[in-house]
């Protein structure tokens, strides 16, 4: 495992921890899109079907369990926790799941490396992860008041994707036959979705003003 991959995983882990910190200690999920969180839970549930059949490493297994456990517990908190759910911006978080899920499923059935159940599910999870942030980005744009933790959460998620691209470039030059068009293209699309957010994030950081996305 190279440094980019490891840093990417750690950034991903940090994003989840920031979100759990916000929800667990502040008891608030204001500005967080439940739709995006539900899509991530679906992403991990469909991607990690190999959890109990293919052993890669202890690190790999532990991380999979962490991402599965954290994504489902975040969804649980926002939907059912009696204090946390009160802060959920339900009226603003209106993105429809099937609008993203159905095209991804269709695309995975058409474009995949191997037409087997597990491989189609794996591919579906890649496509869905690429666009799962959209409800969150829409909500950020609607929320006039983005708090620090929410801003950092989205920034860390974007940084994780950018580091994965560096990881793929590194692996392409150091490992024989390392070519994965589906992973790369969906990963690139996913990272590009953050470009706009990154721009305003760095602007607010540079000028030391509160993060706000233009409508």
């Amino acid at each position: 495992m190279n440094i980019f991959r490891f840093a990417g995983d750690m950034t991903h882990l940090a994003s989840v921890l920031v979100l759990l910190l916000k929800i667990h200690t502040i008891k608030s999920c204001a500005g967080i899109s439940l739709k995006t969180q539900e899509l991530y839970a679906l992403v991990f549930a469909t991607r990690y079907l190999d959890l109990f059949t293919d052993y890669i490493s202890l690190y790999n297994t532990l991380m999979k369990l962490i991402f599965l456990g954290s994504s489902f517990s975040i969804v649980w908190y926002i939907r059912y926790h009696k204090i946390v759910r009160r802060s959920y911006d339900k009226d603003q978080d209106t993105f429809r799941h099937y609008f993203l899920v159905l095209p991804c499923l269709l695309l995975a059935l058409l474009i995949n490396e191997k037409f087997t159940f597990r491989e189609v599910m794996w591919t579906f999870s890649l496509y869905l992860e690429a666009v799962a942030i959209l409800p969150q980005l829409v909500l950020l744009q609607r929320t006039r008041n983005i708090d620090n933790l929410t801003g950092q959460y989205v920034f860390l998620l974007g940084a994780y994707r950018a580091l994965y691209i560096l990881n793929w470039i590194y692996r392409y030059f150091t490992e024989p036959h390392y070519v994965h068009w589906i992973t790369w293209i969906s990963g690139l699309v996913q990272t590009l979705l953050y470009a706009d957010f990154f721009y305003y994030y760095f602007q607010s950081w540079k000028n030391n003003v509160k993060l706000e996305l233009p409508a």
Binding site: D54, I56, S57, F67, E113, K114, E119
Partner: peptide, 10 residues
């Protein structure tokens, strides 16, 4: 194989 090396990522 290609599939296995792809699935070692998270």
């Amino acid at each position: 194989s290609a599939i296995v090396s792809q699935h070692d990522e998270l």
